[in-house]
């Protein structure tokens, strides 16, 4: 089931500890999965028997920003987990950090 991604919204993995925050996403419906299983918004709970798909078990890293190939959708990992992310069936990549000098 596709969901709308609103900036600021939180998503939880149904099969691991991963938590995400939507940094940006153009309006529209998305199929966002972690560990191969649709992620949960708000207070939704995991469907019974949901299991981590070994094909999507590379893990997420806290503090990394995950993007689609066009970098239109950006999700911040606020809690790490075992699953890896896929948006509309395409694996998400870590956005390369830009090295800004510390200014404050």
């Amino acid at each position: 089931m596709a969901v709308a991604l609103k900036a600021g919204a939180k998503l939880k993995s149904a099969v691991c500890d991963t938590q995400l925050m939507v940094v940006k996403a153009p309006a529209g419906e998305y199929d966002i999965r972690c560990g191969g299983v649709e992620m949960l918004a708000g207070t939704a709970t995991a469907p019974e028997g949901a299991q981590l798909d070994p094909a999507y078990a590379a893990g997420t890293l806290i503090g990394k920003r995950y993007v689609d190939p066009e970098e239109k959708v950006e999700l911040l990992c606020t809690k790490a987990g075992q699953g890896s992310l896929a948006l509309n069936g395409v694996a998400m990549d870590i956005k390369q950090a830009k090295q800004l000098p510390s200014s404050d």
């Binding site: 503090g63 911040l76 950090a97 200014s103």
Partner: peptide, 9 residues
């Protein structure tokens, strides 16, 4: 913060 600082840098 997210636009200018790298987490855990």
């Amino acid at each position: 913060i997210v636009g200018t600082v790298e987490f855990g840098a």
